[in-house]
Each structure stands twice: as structure tokens, then as C-alpha cells.
Design a protein around this nucleic acid. Structure first.
Length: 280
DNA sequence: AAGTGCGTCAACCGCACGAAT
DNA sequence: TATTCGTGCGGTTGACGCACT
């Protein structure tokens, strides 16, 4: 950094009173883009002085990382991405940047917002903590199977349905381990075990039948229908607590037990995102 | 049509950490 | 070794838009 640059940065700091905050304008975006195109990323504190932007280095970095980077993906988070977020959060907790690294084109801010708006809303409805056993079970036994079903349903040629996955789970065999649900190959090992305390094999059949009938992903799902006995018994939840029915879309974004996942599975699902073209 | 509540998301803040001086 | 600086991270806030009354 030469003396000219140092002076500019110093002057910028002295004029901190002029520092702009709040939403970025198109002109500011253009200035920041132009700067990064010429100088590359990094040295954000020098951006203000050298580009003419009246923004802090932090603000510039954030704007670039969360909005202006060309490789960013916009739009809704796909089902596959949701599944990946679930497992990664179960592994790493609120390590948003680490999770975002596994979802190319997504930002930590995006994932963090997604988690907070969806999951904490649901936890609030259930009147339990996000990291509680009750909440984890809710996801394991209701949301995850449903998510897999939706991934399968969204594919043109689902070669193996959820029933196959459930069969392999209930039989304790891993011979079906490479079940393909739609275009997403799902290794049952990445999914939580069904505990015997919650349901026996007959329950599994009933669950599979119920889920398979839900062709419309927007249909409200009554949890008590899905698990007629176990939820109320084990959770102490009554219909009043559940506020009637849950919309299944509310189940997006809930964490799994860390023990259910491993590095190999993370890689596996991530690979599927690339293969499906969901990741550029 | 106006007011209100709620969800979403961009942006800010404070802190921690490593590198440079 | 102590201090300063730059960067990154996670938590939080506030603006905005939409739905509902």
C-alpha cells in the first residue's frame, strides 16, 4: 500500500461522520462491483478511500459477499438444500458460515435467516426448544420422511419410493441402502433410525401409507394422524398445543441428531446438488 | 381504504482471532 | 511482547411487503 492510499484511507476514517448506512443504491453497487473487478476481493477498508464509496469496509464486504458476488444463487432454497442444511446443522449447530460453504452460492446470512424464520417459528408453535428431544423427534418422524417423499414426488421418475426406505429402516437391513428417491440418491444411513419405542413395523407401514397419499405437498398434515399415539404420549402434547393442524411446509429446516450424520453423507448429498444442477 | 400484525431478509453491531507492526 | 489493524462470524435489528381485519 503506497502513501497515497494510506492518506485516502486515513481521510476516510476522519470523515466517518459522513459514512453512509442503510440500504445500498444501484450506484453504490456499481461502484463496489467496479472496484472489485479491478482490485479483487479483500482489503475492504481501502475500498471506501479508493472507490469513493462512503461506506465502511465491513459494509462493503457484507454487500459483496451477500449480494453482489456473481456466483451467488438467488431464489428459494431447494428441497435437497433443505435436507443438507438439516443434517449440517445437526452436526455443527449455528456454524452458519461453515454450513454455507457446503452449499455453493448460498450465504451464511441466507441460511441463518432461513433457519430462524422457519425453525424457530415451528418450535414456538410446539412450545419447546429447538434443541430439545421433542423437537428433534418431530423432525425425525414427521418432517424428514415427508421431505424425502416430496423430493421423490418432484422428480419425473422416482425409482424408489419412501416405502422402500422405510422398509429398509424397519427391517434393519442395509441392502436397500442405495435407494434412489427421484433424482436424489438417499443413503438410509444418513437418516435417523426409527426407535422401537415410537412405533413398530406396523406403524411404519401406516406411516408410509399416509405419507404416500399426500400427493399435494401443501396439504396440511395432522401430526396426530401421522403418529396417532406416540406424539401425545411421549411428548405430552395435546391437540391444543399443536394448534390444530400443521402445514407440512412449516417443517422445513429442523435439525437432526448429530449421530445420524457423518462426513461421507454430507459429501454425498452435496454431490447430488451438483448433479441435479441445483448448484452452479 | 386504513390500520395492524406478521414474516422475510438486508444490513448493522459487537466480539474474536490472526497477521502485521 | 504488546498493540493495532483487517477480516470473519453469529446475533440482532429494522425496513419492507403482504395478508388479514
Amino acid at each position: 500500500m503506497d502513501i497515497y492510499q494510506r492518506n485516502l484511507i486515513s481521510e476516510t476514517r476522519q470523515n466517518n461522520m459522513d459514512e453512509r448506512k442503510g440500504p445500498w443504491t444501484e450506484e453504490e453497487d456499481f461502484m463496489l462491483k467496479s472496484y472489485v473487478n479491478v482490485h479483487g476481493e479483500g482489503r475492504w477498508n481501502s475500498v471506501a478511500g479508493l472507490s469513493g464509496l462512503k461506506r465502511s469496509g465491513k459494509s462493503c464486504r457484507l454487500r459483496w459477499m451477500n449480494y453482489l458476488r456473481p456466483e451467488l444463487r438467488r431464489g428459494n432454497i431447494s428441497l435437497q438444500e433443505q435436507l443438507l442444511i438439516l443434517q449440517l446443522h445437526s452436526q455443527w449447530g449455528n456454524r452458519w458460515s461453515k454450513i454455507a460453504q457446503q452449499l455453493p452460492g448460498r450465504t451464511d446470512n441466507e441460511i441463518k435467516n432461513y433457519w430462524r424464520t422457519r425453525v424457530q417459528k415451528l418450535a414456538k408453535q410446539l412450545q419447546c426448544e429447538v434443541d430439545s428431544k421433542q423437537f428433534r423427534d418431530a423432525m425425525r418422524y414427521v418432517w424428514i420422511p415427508r421431505l424425502i417423499e416430496r423430493i421423490g414426488a418432484s422428480s419425473e421418475s422416482p425409482s424408489v419410493q419412501l416405502s422402500t426406505y422405510m422398509d429398509s429402516m424397519s427391517s434393519g437391513q442395509t441392502s436397500h441402502a442405495d435407494a434412489t428417491i427421484g433424482s436424489v440418491q438417499v443413503d438410509p444411513r444418513v437418516l435417523p433410525e426409527l426407535s422401537g419405542t415410537s412405533s413398530d413395523s406396523h406403524d411404519h407401514d401406516a406411516q408410509v401409507a399416509y405419507v404416500s397419499e399426500q400427493a399435494d405437498c401443501c396439504n396440511p398434515l395432522s401430526v396426530s394422524d401421522y403418529y396417532p399415539n406416540s406424539l401425545e404420549k411421549e411428548w405430552g402434547l395435546c391437540s391444543e398445543n399443536l394448534a390444530g393442524t400443521w402445514n407440512i411446509d412449516d417443517w422445513v429446516g429442523i435439525g437432526l441428531e448429530a449421530s445420524a450424520w457423518n462426513e461421507e453423507n454430507v459429501w454425498f448429498l452435496r454431490q447430488q446438488l451438483y448433479d441435479d444442477g441445483n448448484v452452479n
